[in-house]
Design a protein around this nucleic acid. Structure first.
Lengths: 340, 340
DNA sequence: ATGCAAATTGACACCGGTGTCAATTTGCAT
DNA sequence: ATGCAAATTGACACCGGTGTCAATTTGCAT
């Protein structure tokens, strides 16, 4: 390796390596003259701090990791993209770890992962965000984390999405189209986001003065197949719903599939819509109407908060902005007035 | 941190820390007695080697990273899964880095990424696998890498997929169904895999004794939209092809979309198929016939080779097995005899 | 010029490991 | 018992940084 060390810089600048360290870390108590001189040498030699040496000395690796187990690959992919963008800007590496929510040794596996990488910051994706046993372990190991979409949105260390509003507004949109029999496909019961969407849906129906037919709410699990299954149930009901809203796009695409299979015309005979706005929405036919969740921004924000936390900069001023993101209705081809 | 260090183990076992180091690294020249004693203490205290200390002393981080810029998210996702599985088994962390093939500062960005993470092993995904400028930089920095699907498949440090055979067999399948006017959507011209598929397609047509209509080969770029555009071109030709084979599934799904939009019945009026077998194939309607590329296995294998290389174990014996994976035809709902 | 607090700087030890090399112990032939 | 090569072990320096604390320098009031 031809890498330049802090010692090289110190020698060239005629100062001690501790002083160089002070300059690198932007510490106070370095004279302007010294700082300028050292900075010049740093640029001249192309010095870059070795993150391993730093990590060992400070006992903080500044590495962060994304822990994921999410049934919707499109969601994860967008989230990952947002996180990576922030990491890239902040010159941080991102470790990835795939885990299985159902694994009985989950917490142990994650602990081992942390020992292997020494990551000291984690981004938790639902349903991991609410696994108390995991959070306890992280606390014990003093590993920082930011949770995405946890149950208690008020804890400072999380970023979420206003799922109630998303489902509420999507339902309102369907009502404006004059749909009466609107069905709803729930997400996984372990994930709070599913309950939030359900609340939004129920509120919208209630606020419209309609008595909800409980038969039109069916269980799903956020997976494509559960969307297919839910649609199979709903589409054999009489009267058939004229619109189906699914708690995520992955399931909505499943609904689309089952409807096609039965020869039901979309949107003429059935409106279908989802929530999230993953890339899948513009790949299927017809393109899926969805509620855009700014997944990219959520990922970016989560990474940003985590990194600031690790670097010890308190999220002050304009940084402590809203961490509950709003949705946006994206009307595409899969919804219309009944019969059109 | 309550972590146990090598010093703690040494003290408890009554040996020097160098001896403990020898035991950890499975070096020879440690008496059986000492080894047993030290191992006992290691288990008793729950000692785990600190990867940072090791990395600093050995000047090898043993961290690996996946560098990706691929237009098909489904492909990348499956690859990632295979890589992660291997990393998990080998107790290695995986860094992720998203880059843009087109960025003029690509090589510099990647160099910076390596400096920030000290990854000393990389997995390169096409089209990065063939970027000579990048490979040179890695050579210079002595960063090891494994390439996926490079142009020169014979270099030992790569894992690929038999694209010629995949396209050849898929075309044969369509010919067996008695299709005559079979169209082909090319992938990105910068990626060798596209050329390989084209060769397979041409060979199959030639071997069947058919004169190829060059009008039926259109350019694509491996993206969904390029599939839509290619289909728009192909489906307005007279006579219209009765089957379209795309060089990847992402584009095939685009073809499906455009055909639906035009009210063309699939597969009755048009057979559509792709290559890769990404998860998207079973989400769209009708489910897409595809050539399964063992993407998971490819990712796993790439990670395995890289890790072995880093650990210095020469891939000997049964390990040096075939690194060109074969395809498998998966017939689903999007193909049939013409007119059925 | 003098005194003193604050600012600046560097010597040294340390983070948790490994490499080098010399010292000690072991095993075996004589 | 003796000699000698091979096996085993540990002292010490080092990888590239940072923390502590004491020494030196600076800036200002007197």
């Amino acid at each position: 390796m031809s890498s330049v060390t802090i010692n090289d810089v110190a020698r060239h600048a005629g100062v001690s390596k501790k002083t160089v360290s002070r300059v690198i870390n932007n510490e106070i108590n370095v004279s302007a003259e010294t700082r300028t001189k050292v900075m010049a040498v740093i640029h001249q030699l192309g010095f870059k701090r070795n993150p391993l040496g730093m990590a060992l000395a400070k006992n903080r690796s500044l590495f962060i990791a994304l822990l994921a187990d999410n049934p919707s690959p499109g969601y994860l992919q967008k989230l990952q993209k947002g996180i990576l963008q922030c990491c890239s800007e902040e010159h941080m590496g991102l470790f990835l770890y795939d885990c299985s929510y159902r694994s009985p040794t989950l917490v142990h596996e994650i602990e081992e992962f942390i020992d292997n990488t020494l990551a000291d910051g984690l981004i938790l994706v639902p349903p991991l965000s609410d696994k108390q046993e995991l959070l306890d372990m992280l606390q014990r190991k003093r590993v920082r984390y930011i949770r995405i979409g946890p149950k208690d949105q008020d804890s400072g260390d999380c970023v979420s999405f206003n799922g109630v509003k998303a489902a509420y507004e999507m339902t309102q949109y369907l009502l404006r189209l004059h749909h009466k029999d609107i069905a709803f496909v729930l997400g996984h019961p372990d994930q709070e986001s599913s309950h939030r969407c359900e609340r939004g849906f129920r509120n919208a129906i209630a606020d419209a003065g309609i008595t909800l037919n409980e038969q039109l709410i069916v269980q799903g699990y956020y997976t494509h197949q559960s969307g297919v299954d839910a649609a199979a149930t709903l589409l054999s009901r009489t009267p058939r719903p004229t619109a189906i809203l699914a708690a995520n796009d992955e399931m909505a695409v499943g609904v689309l599939y089952e409807a096609h299979r039965r020869g039901i015309k979309i949107p003429a005979e059935l409106s279908v819509c989802g929530i999230d706005d993953i890339s899948l929405t513009t790949k299927v036919w017809p393109n899926l109407t969805s509620m855009r969740q700014p997944i990219n921004a959520i990922g970016y924000r989560a990474a940003f908060k985590l990194i600031k936390k690790l670097k010890g900069e308190t999220a002050a001023g304009n940084d402590s902005g809203a961490d509950i993101f709003d949705c946006e209705l994206i009307v595409r081809e899969s919804t219309s007035q009944p019969g059109r």
